[in-house]
């Protein structure tokens, strides 16, 4: 019997918010398996395609936490457009390294970095209207929108990312056991 629904390719979007792109580098560590992946998915908005707006997608991968107004905007766009949203990496999961500024006031941070740090000559705090406004605290993404899955790690290994994505694509509950599940 002919299949009623053609096996269509899924659409995958990725972005980095308050992250270091390390998770995207780890994603590229799936190496030649990328070729298998593009057989099964089309990339939408992602640093790999340079598409700027996220269209309707099946899966969204978010690296990084939320540190400014633009991050919130992009995260909400991904939540609207993606059926399944995945937090990838320590920063998306719990704020990570950027959140280590959370016990300082934002003013203190800006002052230290742009005005008083040794070696700074006539520094000034950037105030170009094009720049997104920083938030007073950095937050993990599940505090802003609903997140369906989490892949911890700083960054998660290419093998962990591959295991997770292939579980998902094959219709299994994604699972990372020892040694793929790690927080460091």
């Amino acid at each position: 019997m002919e299949a009623v629904v053609q096996n269509r390719k899924l659409r995958l979007a990725t972005t980095s918010l308050a992250g270091c792109f390390g998770c995207h580098m780890a994603f590229l560590d799936i190496d030649e398996r990328l070729l298998d992946l593009v057989e099964r998915v089309d990339f939408d908005r992602s640093p790999l395609t340079d598409i700027k707006q996220c269209g309707a997608c099946d899966i969204g991968l978010i690296e990084g936490g939320i540190c400014n107004a633009e991050n919130i905007h992009v995260l909400q766009e991904f939540r609207r457009q993606c059926k399944v949203l995945i937090a990838i990496g320590a920063c998306a999961v719990n704020g990570g390294l950027p959140a280590q500024r959370n016990h300082l006031s934002l003013g203190q941070c800006l002052q230290e970095v742009y005005l008083t740090w040794p070696g700074i000559v006539s520094g000034q705090i950037p105030n170009d209207p094009e720049l997104p406004l920083p938030l007073d605290k950095v937050h993990p993404i599940h505090e802003i929108v609903r997140i369906d899955y989490f892949i911890p790690g700083c960054p998660p290994s290419g093998d962990a990312i591959w295991k997770f994505l292939t579980d998902l694509l094959d219709g299994r509950t994604p699972r990372l056991g020892h040694p793929l599940l790690h927080f460091d």
């Binding site: 704020g95 016990h103 599940h142 911890p152 599940l181 790690h182």
Partner: peptide, 17 residues
């Protein structure tokens, strides 16, 4: 957390000082 497959903190962070 690994043993019990804790993948996320689930709750909001306190970020104490």
């Amino acid at each position: 957390a690994y043993e019990l497959e804790m993948l996320s903190p689930h709750f909001n962070q306190f970020y104490p000082n």
